[in-house]
Design a protein around this nucleic acid. Structure first.
Lengths: 214, 214
DNA sequence: AAGAAGTCGTGATTTCCTTCACAATTTATC
DNA sequence: GATAAATTGTGAAGGAAATCACGACTTCTT
């Protein structure tokens, strides 16, 4: 797999590029330069060219990039041709926000099911996603490899263990808990309080620094 | 301001350390080593020691760190003695999740007000935070320097311009739009679809890589 | 009181990522 | 068709962050 050579920082920008290329395509634009793209996604144009270059020479000197070609290329690269199924654990406000989000449009990701402990929610569906009882998780999960964790921190460890036991491969963790998993399982943490506090910290201690931090 | 020397990567971990130290303190622990902390927050112990060392010699060789002392130190460093007021724009599911989150406990951040265009929400309050009409934003904002953007992407540019005009300093943007601001304003983007897709990408292309990515 | 174990703080190294800067090439203009 | 303008792809340089590795010191054990 030669894509092992792609820097992680680049990989994290790919979905962003993909979405903006999609927008351009819908607008009927057929060509785009790294400079234009840079203004749209707020990433330095040299970085964009470098990112693209990991996949080969995708552009043409003096011309830029062909939108349709680039899109097609990324669709393959990002495995957009194959739907990825995801489960959501915890149908609170944050979980509900996810259920309303249409990940199919740009991402080819589908939340297939959700779980909650609240009997009032179990049996209903939100955004077309059925909600099952958390006790039935193992019965229903069946082959799903990715989970979004939007549960209270106190539940994180228990649920994580069950997911790991069941053979989950990746977890997007919105819990403040730093969960423990075997090393073959990938966890991305998104900690809303940390993000907010980090922003506040930067404002106070790094005034007037122009860069946008991811 | 000598804290200009603190690496941004370190600054982003400070809130995390702070919260775990708080937990330890509540549990009655008086002492902690970088190794223990490392296991709890999933950050290499050398990195933790390096992070702390930017603030001086906070620990004792052969002993570790005194929890209470460290906490007190970070409280000052993170400006935890002074409440930071924040406004939330957009009371959808994601916004509501924020309103229920108690940022006072660990972060000394307070969402003072929220705005929405939905007349049904205006006038009510969630989690003790009053909801005003988005049209009244300028009238109410009054001195607030930080905003959380949880609105539809289509509204992002317009609202951002108004916030900038009003003198906002920092924006936590949950919108997929990459908003444009003057360079003295700090924007942190958190793009849920990008995060999810990046996780999926890593799972497919970087199998069995143990590190936890932030 | 001596030796063993534990732990920090940090110089040095390594890894990863970004940015510069420019030759090569294509496209646009007149 | 010749000249000017635009733009890529990339070697090289620069920068930021993570990690190694160990001397120095503290605490624990007997």
């Amino acid at each position: 797999m030669d894509q092992n050579k792609i820097p992680q920082a680049t990989a994290k920008r790919l979905p962003l590029y993909y979405r903006f290329l999609n927008n351009l395509n819908h607008q009927g634009k057929t060509r785009v330069s790294s400079k234009e793209l840079s203004e749209a996604v707020k990433v330095d144009s040299a970085t964009i060219r470098r990112d693209f270059s990991y996949f080969g020479a995708l552009g043409k000197k003096g011309y830029g990039y062909n939108v349709e070609y680039l899109l097609g290329f990324f669709r393959k690269t990002l495995d957009q041709d194959e739907v990825t199924d995801v489960a959501l654990i915890g149908v609170g406000n944050l979980g509900t926000a996810f259920l309303h989000y249409n990940f199919m449009k740009n991402n080819n990701i589908k939340i297939q099911m959700a779980f909650d402990a609240d009997e009032n929610k179990v049996g209903s569906s939100i955004g077309g996603v059925p909600i099952y009882h958390i006790n039935d998780m193992e019965k229903k999960l069946n082959g799903i490899k990715v989970a979004i964790l939007t549960i209270p921190a106190s539940e994180a460890d228990g649920i994580t263990d069950r997911l790991v036991e069941h053979g989950i491969k990746g977890i997007l963790n919105f819990t403040p808990a730093r969960i423990s998993v075997p090393e073959h399982i990938r966890v991305h943490h998104i900690d809303l309080a940390v993000e907010l506090q980090a922003l506040v910290y930067f404002l106070k201690h790094y005034p007037l620094v122009p860069e946008v931090i991811e």
